[in-house]
Computed example of a mutant assay.
Amino acid sequence: MAYVPVPKDLTKVKTKVAFNLTKRQLIFFAAALALGLLLFFLLKNSAGTSLAAMVMIVVMLPCFLFAMYEKHGQPLEVVIRNIINTKFTRPKERPYQTQNFYAVLERQAKLEKEVSAIAKGNFKKGAAKKPRSRG
């Protein structure tokens, strides 16, 4: 009797279309093949076979990377976008600011103390002097 391993996390299982490749991989491999062969045959006569092969490799490599590379379930373009966001578009320094509940309670207590002092009439602050009566 043959046993087939079944993964516990089925979210990481991807549907294969042909040749045990996903649709995304097939699209990028086809694009790499088309671009690489086109450039190879265009450059073979004028630049030589070895230079044409090197240009073909350099052009096809990014397509292969976009097809195969994944980090933490994210494709290469998402990883590159995240790197660009963190390095260039968002601010470098993000100061840590908290909502200090204790400071809010202290301010509230101070304000309540001032209000009660004003209500009792014995508030002593420089700006809150009683006006002189003219008479």
Score class of each variant (00 low, 15 high):
Phe88Val: 15
Gly73Ile: 03
Asn100Gly: 00
Glu106Lys: 00
Glu106Met: 02
Ala47Phe: 15
Ala34Val: 12
Lys92Thr: 14
Asn100Leu: 04
Lys8Arg: 12
Lys8Cys: 09
Glu112Ala: 13
Ala18Ile: 08
Asn122Leu: 08
Val104Asn: 10
Phe123Met: 06
Ala127Glu: 10
Arg81Gly: 09
Lys120Trp: 00
Tyr102Arg: 15
Asn82Cys: 02
Lys8Met: 11
Phe88Ile: 15
Lys14Asp: 08
Leu111Phe: 12
Lys8Tyr: 11
Ser46Ile: 14
Arg134Pro: 11
Ala117Asn: 13
Phe64Asp: 04
Ala18Cys: 14
Gly36Ser: 14
Glu112Asn: 13
Met54Lys: 03
Thr89Leu: 13
Val78Lys: 14
Lys87Glu: 15
Ala128Val: 09
Lys113Val: 01
Ile118Trp: 07
Lys110Tyr: 02
Arg134Lys: 10
Pro5Tyr: 05
Thr98Ser: 15
Ala18Lys: 12
Asn45Arg: 09
Arg81Pro: 00
Val115Tyr: 14
Ala31Phe: 10
Pro75Asp: 05
Ser116Trp: 14
Ala117Arg: 10
Pro5Cys: 02
Phe29Asn: 14
Ala52Phe: 01
Lys120Ile: 00
Leu42Tyr: 09
Met54Asp: 07
Lys92Ser: 14
Pro91Met: 01
Leu111Met: 10
Lys87His: 15
Met56Glu: 05
Ala67Ser: 00
Phe66Pro: 00
Glu106Arg: 05
Leu37Asn: 11
Pro95Ser: 07
Gly121Thr: 02
Ala128Trp: 02
Ala117Ser: 15
Leu21His: 07
Lys124Met: 10
Glu77Leu: 01
Thr11Asp: 15
Lys8Leu: 14
Gly36Val: 01
Val13Leu: 05
Val79Met: 02
Ala109Cys: 05
Leu43Gly: 10
Phe101Ile: 06
Leu37Val: 11
Ala30Leu: 12
Cys63Trp: 08
Asn82Leu: 07
Leu26Gly: 11
Ala67Pro: 02
Lys130Met: 14
Pro95Ile: 02
Phe41Gly: 05
Phe88His: 12
Val59Ile: 13
Gly121Ala: 04
Ile80Ala: 12
Ala31Lys: 04
Lys12Asp: 03
Ser46Asp: 10
Lys125Ala: 15
Val17Ile: 12
Ala30Arg: 01
Ala18Trp: 12
Pro91Lys: 03
Asn85Arg: 11
Ala32Asp: 05
Lys8Ala: 13
Ala52Gln: 02
Phe28Ser: 01
Ser116Pro: 08
Lys92Trp: 11
Ala31Cys: 13
Asn122Phe: 08
Gln99Pro: 07
Lys14Cys: 00
Lys44Cys: 03
Ile84Asn: 06
Leu42Asn: 10
Lys44Ser: 09
Glu106Asp: 08
Pro5Met: 05
Phe29Pro: 05
Leu105Tyr: 03
Leu65Thr: 07
Arg134Phe: 14
Phe29His: 12
Ile27Cys: 02
Glu70Leu: 02
Gly121Ser: 04
Pro5Lys: 03
Val104Pro: 05
Val6Arg: 11
Tyr102Ser: 15
Val4Met: 04
Arg90Leu: 13
Leu76Lys: 04
Ile80Arg: 01
Ser50Glu: 15
Ile57Asp: 01
Leu37Thr: 08
Gln74Ser: 07
Ile80Glu: 06
Leu35Asn: 05
Val17Cys: 06
Leu33Arg: 01
Asn85Tyr: 03
Thr22Ile: 03
Phe101Asn: 06
Leu39Ile: 04
